[in-house]
């Protein structure tokens, strides 16, 4: 399990687009609109580059999900009938729906096996990683200021809301410990959520239940999250995040990484999960990011100074 920072996500996209020598993360995030930049061996407007990077980021991430999905043929059979001809951004959504429903089913069928539990944990981890990528994408669309991104942003925001709903549902109705029995009470609590995701899978994106009804019946509604409201500035959020990381590289160790998730990954019982163990768990999977943050920002700033 690893947690890429926003800077790493952008560095990877620039690298994959062969743009990292000419365009820096700082330029992508902070350059004023209409600035001329070098992008893939030609000069262009930074806003155009931002849209291209965001499109690529979202498409490649969605493609990766779909390509890695072993049950894609089952998903096609059990989902909205036009799924095979939908763009990959929406195909990914149906993969998530299928997996969320399967996890809820398998984690409530009487016994939680190691395999069931690992699948649950992997799914939850993937949702956090994808959420971060989607927010970076939205930040780039917002920063570009281009009118043609408003439809893409709106669809992406809806996808983000659904992703969060699936994660919340899995966390609400599945237990966070493997190799244990599950009661009938748990099964009955999980059933409406399973039916909800199975039902959504038959509908075109982004059809949904009435929000108030969903909140009342299922207790989940990420439509009210502050960062999906019409007045939320994704560009400002991305810039703030990147500045936070550059100014305090060690800060990435905090809230994004939940040491309680580590407890579940290596199956430590609560009695052995002391403050010292939690503190040690926080230190895992931090080396690469910490090194990148300590080494790269100097190079990023040097690039900027060189240009001036």
């Amino acid at each position: 399990m690893s947690f890429q920072t926003e800077i790493e996500i952008l560095q990877n996209v620039l690298s994959e687009k062969n743009a990292e020598d000419a365009l820096t993360v700082l330029e992508v995030v902070f350059a004023p609109r209409n600035r001329t930049v070098h992008f893939q061996n030609y000069e262009t407007n930074i806003d155009t580059a931002r849209v291209e990077l965001a499109d690529y980021l979202e498409k490649s991430a969605a493609q990766k999900t779909v390509q890695n999905e072993k049950n894609f043929s089952k998903i096609i059979q059990s989902s909205f009938k036009n799924l095979p001809s939908e763009p990959v951004y929406f195909q990914e959504y149906y993969c998530w729906l299928y997996n969320a429903a399967e996890i809820i089913k398998n984690m409530n069928d009487g016994y939680i096996s190691q395999a069931d539990f690992s699948t649950r944990q992997n799914f939850l981890t993937e949702t956090y990683a994808r959420e971060k990528e989607i927010l970076v994408c939205l930040g780039l669309y917002d920063a570009s200021g281009q009118a043609n991104t408003s439809t893409k942003s709106a669809a992406l925001i809806k996808k983000l809301i659904k992703l969060r709903e699936m994660r919340t549902a899995v966390e609400l109705v599945t237990l966070d410990e493997p190799e244990r029995e599950v009661s009938k009470e748990n099964y009955e609590k999980a059933l409406p959520y399973y039916k909800y995701f199975k039902g959504l899978a038959k509908l075109p994106f982004p059809f949904d239940l009435n929000q108030e009804q969903k909140e009342e019946d299922l207790g989940i509604n990420h439509f009210k999250d502050s960062d999906v409201q019409p007045d939320f500035k994704f560009k400002d959020a991305l810039q703030n995040k990147v500045l936070d990381i550059i100014q305090n590289p060690s800060a990435y160790l905090k809230p994004d990484f939940d040491p309680n998730k580590y407890k579940n990954i290596i199956y430590i019982s609560s009695k052995e999960f002391s403050d010292k163990v939690k503190d040690l768990a926080l230190r895992r999977q931090t080396f690469c990011v910490k090194y990148a943050l300590l080494e790269k920002p100097e190079k990023l700033l040097d690039n900027l100074k060189g240009e001036n």
């Binding site: 290596i266 052995e272 163990v277 040690l280 230190r283 895992r284 931090t286 080396f287």
Partner: peptide, 24 residues
């Protein structure tokens, strides 16, 4: 660098195991 992270994680896991043994 991923290999370095693997090594560090493995060493941290050793410390976690030692702490768990102490608790048990």
């Amino acid at each position: 660098l991923e290999r370095v992270e693997q090594i560090c994680d493995w060493l941290i896991d050793e410390k976690i195991l030692a702490e768990r043994a102490h608790l048990i």
